[in-house]
């Protein structure tokens, strides 16, 4: 098993946690200037103010308003995950990606199915 793997220089060794996908290889970005963080901050501000403007100044018709701002929230959440929570950094990715997937599955499942089941209430009563 382990001795079959070629050892990558930056991979943690000997604990069965070697990264096998090139995409998920351990990496860390060292920069002279926190440009990634500043980009993330500006994008977050733009998305927030965009959602706020849509609601406060009626930039879009009401029926499509809620889906649009929800999509904006999901985009911003994904941005925060990718940029600020360092999802692709370190050897964390292969470790925490299954946990994160489970969390999203359970979390969205609870929310989605609760809303779905409550839609039947009006039909029953």
């Amino acid at each position: 098993m382990d001795h079959e793997h070629p050892r990558r220089p930056q991979a943690p060794t000997g604990h069965g946690d070697e990264v096998e996908l090139a995409l998920l290889q351990p990496k860390m970005h060292a920069t002279q200037f926190p440009s990634l963080q500043i980009t993330g901050y500006i994008l977050a501000l733009v998305l927030t103010l965009l959602a706020f403007g849509m609601v406060a100044y009626h930039w879009v018709p009401v029926p499509s308003l809620i889906p649009i701002i929800l999509v904006l929230a999901f985009i911003q959440g994904a941005l925060q995950m990718g940029i600020f929570m360092h999802l692709r950094e370190g050897r964390g990715t292969t470790w925490h990606l299954p946990v994160l997937a489970l969390a999203l599955f359970v979390g969205l499942g609870i929310v989605g199915f609760s809303i779905w089941i409550m839609m039947f209430k009006s039909g029953v009563s």
């Binding site: 943690p12 970005h29 060292a30 370190g90 050897r91 946990v99």
Partner: peptide, 26 residues
């Protein structure tokens, strides 16, 4: 400007600290 170095952040080089970070994800 952005260069990928071959070193991991110190907290990820140590096996025990990596496990603690994993625990925090849980």
């Amino acid at each position: 400007m952005s260069t990928t170095t071959s070193t991991l952040p110190p907290e990820f080089q140590d096996n025990m600290e990596s496990i603690r970070i994993m625990g925090f994800w849980i």
